[in-house]
Simulated scan of single mutants.
Amino acid sequence: MRYLDKSGLSKIFIIIFHLVGLIGFLLPNYHDFFLSFVPFHLLLMAGILIANQKEYNKNFWMCTVAIILAGITVEIIGVATGAIFGNYTYGQTLGFKVADVPLLIGVNWFIIVFCVGAVLKKYFKHQRNLKSLIGAFILVMMDVLIEPVAIKFDYWSWQDSIIPLQNFVAWYIVSFFFLRAYYEIDFRKTNKVAGVLLISQTLFFIILNLTVV
C-alpha cells in the first residue's frame, strides 16, 4: 500500500524518533540518557534523508560531501577565531571533535540545507538566488529556535552567555552560499521526506523553547 512505501515508513520513523527524543528532553531524569543518543539521531536522520533521495549521481554525492566538509571547515575557523559567528565553544553533546568542532556539525549542515533546499525547489522556478535568499532566512529562523536549546543541553556555549547578532548575520550569509551551491550543482532535488523532517525539527525546538528553556 502507498503509505507503507519507503518514503511513508521513513516519515513515520522521523516523527516517532522526534517524539521520543522530545519526551526524553522533557523529562529531567532522562536528559543524560537521551543526550547520549543525539549523535546517532543526527546520523539516522541524515541516512533517512539520503535513502529518500530521488536519484543518485556523482553530483549529488559531490554536493553532499562538499556541504559537510564546508560546514565543518567554517565551524573550525569560527571556533578558532571568533571572526565568523562570534566567540563560542562546543560542548560534549555532539560527540567526537576535530580542532574543537564536532564532526557531526557538518552532517547537521547537510541535513538542514538539503531539507530546506528540497522543500523550496518547487517554488520560484529557475530563480536560484531568490530561493537561496528565502532558504537562508528560514535557516536563520531555525537557528533562533535552536540556540536556547543548544545552550541548555551543552551542544555549545557563548562567551559571556550572550548570543551576538554577528552569529545570525553569519548564519544567513553561510546558509545562502550553501543553498546557492546546492541549487547550482545539477542533480535531482526531489526528496519526499525533507518537508516532514524540517517540520519535525522545527516543532521539536519550538516545544522545547516553550517548556524547558
Results as ranks from 00 to 15, higher is better:
Ala181Ile: 13
Phe34Ile: 13
Leu42Pro: 05
Ile151Pro: 01
Val116Thr: 15
Gly21Ile: 05
Phe177Glu: 12
Cys115Pro: 03
His31Trp: 13
Leu42Met: 15
Tyr90Ser: 06
Pro102Gly: 06
Met45Pro: 05
Phe85Asp: 03
Val140Leu: 10
Phe13Trp: 11
Thr81Asn: 06
Leu139Val: 11
Ile14Ser: 05
Phe137Asp: 01
Tyr56Leu: 13
Val20His: 06
Phe137Trp: 08
Pro148Leu: 00
Gly21Trp: 03
Phe187Asn: 10
Ile76Ala: 12
Glu184Trp: 12
Ala170Cys: 07
Gly95Arg: 08
Tyr88Lys: 11
Val174Arg: 08
Phe177Asp: 04
Gly117Pro: 09
Phe110Ala: 10
Val212His: 02
Thr211Val: 15
Tyr172Lys: 07
Lys11Ser: 14
Ile146Gly: 00
Phe137Lys: 04
Val212Gln: 02
Tyr88Val: 08
Ala46Met: 11
Ala150Thr: 04
Gln127His: 14
Val79Gln: 02
Trp156Tyr: 11
Thr64His: 03
Lys97Asn: 09
Leu104Lys: 11
Lys125Gln: 11
Tyr172Val: 08
Ile12His: 02
Leu103Glu: 00
Leu133Ser: 11
Ser157Cys: 00
Thr202Lys: 00
Val213Ala: 13
Ile23Val: 15
Tyr123Cys: 04
Ile12Thr: 12
Val38Cys: 05
Tyr3Phe: 14
Gly117Ala: 07
Ile68Arg: 01
Ile15Trp: 05
Tyr123Val: 08
Gln166Pro: 04
Gln166Ile: 01
Glu184Met: 13
Leu42Val: 12
Ala170Thr: 05
Met141Val: 15
Trp156Ala: 03
Glu184Ala: 14
Thr93Glu: 09
Asn29Ile: 07
Ile68Ala: 07
Ala46Ile: 00
Leu120Asn: 01
